[in-house]
Design a binder for these strands. Structure first.
Lengths: 338, 338
DNA sequence: CTGAAAGCGCTTACAG
DNA sequence: CTGAAAGCGCTTACAG
């Protein structure tokens, strides 16, 4: 592998000059510049990033910490899109991304490897359950960081997520517009970092606006798995006065609910309307395809990375939470209440 | 951040000595060793990897290049498991992993960033379509590399994948044992790197052994998406003498086939048996749950990383293809032929 | 067992 | 505009 010395020798200049054309400094003669560039091409030269980082204090890599509890694998497609978003904008900025999916127990060591070894310039974290990320530790370290995806507004800075409140509001408003009055809610778990509270708030607002009442008995809690959706639907549909529609806080639980309803001989959407959240590929695989609230995980990843680079470059000291749009996608599981 | 100088000063030794205890060299007095360790703890010291790498020629990071064509997102859960496997064994070896999911067009620059910047000690690649990876370029570079997952045996070294032939053999043998004689095959695309040929070979062997004939008209080609499975099933089920069972080369196509069959009023498994490949979560979400051939992507990732470290450490010069087990998982879509 | 010194490949004041 | 020199934080012969 060619080094800066090889280039300098071939171009007949000093390594300082080579370094200057590398960093695009203005004060280099056109002649030197051209010769250096020619030499670089001939030698197929790329600067060694470790060396550059050592003198630079920039490593040109960011860390990406994502949860990987196999039990929460429900979010795979969503998660993968976030990763992909981060990765693609990192690439366009000539940055590499170091990935950590370590389990809870290894989290600490992931931090160590990432932070204390001087390997990264910044960090984006995707959180699901509370307590996964140690804010204090990270803040003390002082590394630029942005939190992407699920995170609730515990910390109203440097985070980007979708408009959870609005999504839930749209879902319930739509059901109300179809004439549904008794609307069951399948919520996510309370210790989940995803904005359960924000979504419930959206539900309440829609209900209030539609002149319907929020009934706590119509709220059932799941853990985002299909099975928990099945059980939650069971609780909801065996109520004395069963709901005519259900809004589930993710698609998988909606699918679980769908299965339970079917087993009970309920037709969808004739006897029960159903609406999910996320818009993962699964929604168009089930029959009928699931009406849902779409999120844009790729955009979440891109935005997070973009802001992180602003932080790293000092263009930003901090930034207020960025809330990304959601949209209602009407498919086959919703229908007028009869 | 503390440096090796800080530690040396505090422990009252030279940095050489600190470096020695860091690398666990035997010839250090117990006393020095203890003092150094104490100092490291007090300062919360971690060696700077860029510096170490610079003098070492080891960076302690491996690259992971995976395909990310949105169109092939079908493999997400499978892919994520491979990534997770690689990452976890990298971690236990104190290695970090640099991820690249660049699109085809950016592939080259991913290589550049990874290889020519001296950032990685080794590489694991996950390939899907032919031509995604430039073997020649990589071989010339001479970096240790292993290919994981889908890759066909074009290059019978340094690759790890599942036993494609056996999987297909098991699927078809099972259908034969249920009395099926006319068995439709929904194959993957021919330009896919996955071992389509090996699987077709397994099909032929099973058929021969069962005294049935291989009929090319019963083979339909899809591209691994649900939609292509739907269309392939259409081709197969409108044949003059329709098959009583179908083996699809992935679960998504099997699900597409399921949908088409249903639309035609065929009951599953009463009128048509169906068997997939991979065993992704989807299999247990559809109704009835899909009989399939299970792969172990996490193990593929782990094994690939493990072998890569052997390559990096010089314990191995090269290794012959590692073929991992598969297993038949009987669920609800297969039944005796009547 | 211990440490001074050179070197890994770059960048950045600094002097010319 | 150009280049000699110091320094980034480590490791590794080498001499003691």
């Amino acid at each position: 592998m060619a080094t800066i010395y090889d280039v300098a020798r071939l171009a007949n200049v000093s390594i300082t000059t080579v370094s200057k054309v590398l960093s695009n400094t203005p004060y280099v003669s056109a002649r030197s510049k051209q010769r250096v560039q020619e030499a670089m091409r001939q030698l197929n030269y790329s600067p060694n990033l470790a060396a550059r980082g050592l003198s630079n204090k920039h490593t040109y890599v960011i860390g990406l910490i994502v949860p990987s509890d196999p039990d929460t694998s429900f979010h795979d497609p969503f998660l993968l899109e976030i990763i992909r978003g981060v990765e693609s904008t990192a690439n366009t900025n000539d940055y590499n991304v170091l990935l950590s999916m370590s389990k809870q127990t290894n989290r600490r060591s992931a931090y160590r490897r990432f932070l204390h070894t001087g390997y990264i310039d910044g960090l984006v974290t995707v959180e699901t359950y509370q307590g996964e990320i140690n804010d204090k530790e990270l803040d003390e370290h002082g590394i630029p960081r942005v939190s992407a995806g699920y995170r609730e507004d515990l910390r109203p800075i440097n985070t980007v997520h979708c408009d959870d409140r609005l999504g839930a509001y749209q879902a319930v408003s739509y059901l109300l517009s179809l004439g549904h009055r008794r609307i069951g809610i399948i919520s996510g778990p309370k210790n989940f970092v995803v904005a359960i509270e924000a979504r419930l708030q959206g539900v309440r607002e829609a209900l209030a606006e539609g002149g319907a009442e929020f009934d706590q008995r119509l709220v059932s809690y799941g853990d985002f798995t299909t099975e928990s959706g099945y059980r939650a639907a069971q609780a909801l549909l065996t109520l004395p006065e069963r709901p005519s529609a259900i809004f589930a806080m993710n698609d998988r639980m909606a699918v679980g609910a769908m299965r339970y309803a079917r087993e009970q001989g309920l037709r969808i959407p004739e006897d029960l309307s159903l609406i999910g959240f996320d818009d993962v590929p699964l929604t168009t695989i089930v029959e009928p395809p699931l009406t849902t609230i779409r999120q844009f995980p790729n955009m979440i990843g891109k935005t997070a990375a973009d802001r992180l680079f602003a932080l790293i470059n000092g263009e930003l000291e901090t930034f207020p939470t960025i809330v990304l749009p959601v949209e209602l996608v009407v498919r086959g599981t919703t229908r007028k209440c009869v």
